[in-house]
Design a protein around this nucleic acid. Structure first.
Length: 493
RNA sequence: GGCAUCGUGGCCGAGUGGCUAGGCGCAGCUCUGCAAAAGCUUGUACAGCGGUUCGAAUCCGCUCGAUGCCUCCA
């Protein structure tokens, strides 16, 4: 039997503002769409957090036995740099600045994006479609919206008529905005453009002669509006209504609001049952911004080449750090916080190593089944990874007590514990055991075992000068010796 | 200016109308030749001011502060 039949998953739906029992449209199957990156520069860490949250969600849904089609797009066209006047595409602008073909920019940063995600141990999505690969689908949707009367064409561009749409639909229901308020608060300096009202947004933009990214359309050469690709691609691969749509909080308005409007206008019904929004990452309590220098790239964390952190941190440690916070909370990254996570991560991994070699007995002091359900309860409560991790540390405590001979565990329970802990740590949280222990390279392991033996001989002879020299020099090399009841083990940092 | 979210102990970060979150750090103890590791024990909280309640950090109001959105943005 699939796990989802016995576990009740609840998710926080941004659309209703409530935690709701999750029920897919087709039993056993889930369609999930997440807004991916615009590939005009290196992915920054905040981006990674959002995608990591949905990677974890994807992993847990799969763990529960669902068949998930996870679509995460690559935006390689369509996002405007400024509003009306030059109408220049972000990608095109970067291409001009770097003297590259637009697709060269796209390729470079797509590769960077994939590299970083791989380091973070992301699962690849089921489909990773690009905006430029779906121009035809986007044009089709524009036609439908025009046919239904919710858009107008002017000077080779097509705009979505928000006011008209709002007469029969609720524009703003996701972000809790009222069109009247938006109109009242419109800034004065709205530049000259063809829009009937500032709230309207472009479905198709006419390309000026110098604009290098352009496609033919019924309205002339141009390029698609910046919200349309997600509607086109989610509809194509997941259908007109699908289960989960995710993205960063900052996309709630206007991006996701516009997606809803486009879908409702063209298809006549709401596109998504559960809207999930991942929250922002701040750096030292402030928002990340290139302009202020309060910014860090994932690669700079892994290499340690940055001015913000005292040392390098591995992708797994960063992942563990992010999993220690709930995905809907703002998370603040700082040196102290990463340092603390690194220690905790090491403790967890050490315990998983210890578990392998644990002696078993005739009874268990640790109620594994009860604990196991607590782990599921945590994840079922809107993917509460911090609580899951707290539960994992409960297990760590027992593992260490058993190792010290203060508690016992049966063989059967040990196997169950191993299975559950591996499932949650590696499959669901997506952590990797990069801190090698004795299972690392056998040569290193052999050498350290030899040194441990020599040290123990020295200790037996009360030659503490020699034994301390071995221990201290190994420590200096990053190899920590751990004396226990059952002998000495080591870990490499 | 408008909308939204949030404000927890030395740091990070869960949660909740009355019952230990957890990690890191600090202190004491056990173990150790000494340490480290591990275990045990302990302290320091719920932004401020009012209100609802038998009882609120948890609900309501106000104030202050932070973050996000309102223009592309995970």
């Amino acid at each position: 039997m699939q796990l989802y039949k016995s576990q009740t998953l609840k998710v926080y739906n941004s659309l209703t503002g409530k935690k709701e029992v999750f029920k897919p449209i087709n039993e056993g199957h889930i369609g999930m769409y997440v807004c991916g990156p615009t590939v005009y520069s290196n992915v920054h860490l905040g981006n990674c957090r959002t995608f990591m949250s949905f990677d974890m969600i994807f992993r847990y849904l799969k763990h529960l036995g669902y068949k998930v089609r996870y679509v995460r797009n690559i935006t390689d066209a369509g996002h405007l740099v400024d509003d009306a006047e030059d109408g220049e595409d972000k990608i095109a602008k970067k291409a001009r600045l770097e003297q590259l073909e637009p697709m060269e920019v796209v390729q470079r940063y797509t590769v960077d994006f994939h590299n970083i995600l791989e380091k973070f141990n992301f699962l690849p999505p089921s489909i990773e479609p690009t905006a430029t690969g779906h121009i035809i689908e986007q044009i089709e949707i524009i036609k439908e919206i025009l046919d239904k009367g919710y858009a107008y064409e002017i000077n080779g561009s097509v705009y979505f008529d928000v006011k008209k749409f709002n007469e029969s639909h609720d524009y703003g229901k996701l972000s809790g905005r009222k069109l009247e308020d938006m109109i009242a608060n419109t800034r004065e300096l709205a530049a000259q453009d063809d829009k009937r009202s500032p709230q309207d947004f472009a479905l198709w933009k006419k390309a000026e002669p110098q604009h290098i990214m352009r496609w033919p359309s019924p309205w002339g050469d141009g390029f698609p509006g910046w919200h349309l690709e997600c509607t086109a691609m989610s509809t194509k691969y997941l259908g007109e209504t699908f289960d989960i749509h995710g993205g960063g909080m900052d996309l709630k308005f206007p991006h996701h609001e516009c997606e809803i409007a486009q879908s409702e206008a063209s298809h006549g019904h709401s596109p998504v049952n559960y809207w999930l929004h991942a929250n922002m990452l701040t750096l030292n309590g402030k928002k990340m911004a290139k302009s202020t220098g309060n910014n860090i790239l994932p690669g700079e964390i892994f290499s340690g080449e940055n001015k913000i952190l005292s040392k390098a941190f591995s992708p797994s440690v960063v992942r563990f750090f992010m999993m220690q916070a709930h995905y809907t909370s703002i998370l603040d990254l700082s040196n102290d916080a990463l340092l603390a996570s690194e220690k905790g991560y090491g403790k967890l991994m050490d315990a998983i190593e210890t578990l392998k070699g644990l002696d078993t007995g005739t009874s268990s002091d640790f109620q594994i089944l009860e604990w196991k359900q607590q782990c599921y309860d945590a994840m079922n409560d809107d993917f509460n990874t911090p609580i899951l991790i707290a539960n994992l540390f409960e297990a760590v405590k027992h593992i260490n007590l058993i190792k010290e001979g203060k508690e016992t565990i049966t063989n059967e329970d040990k196997e169950l514990l191993t299975q559950v802990i591996n499932a949650f740590v590696f499959d669901v949280l997506g952590l990797e055991n990069k801190s090698m222990g004795a299972n690392d390279s056998s040569k290193l392991s052999g050498v350290v075992e030899l040194l441990i033996e020599l040290r123990n001989d020295a200790r037996a002879n009360k030659d503490f000068a020699t034994s301390d020299k071995i221990r201290d020099q190994l420590t200096a090399l990053g190899i920590q010796l751990k004396d226990g009841k059952e002998g000495t083990t080591f870990s490499v940092s």
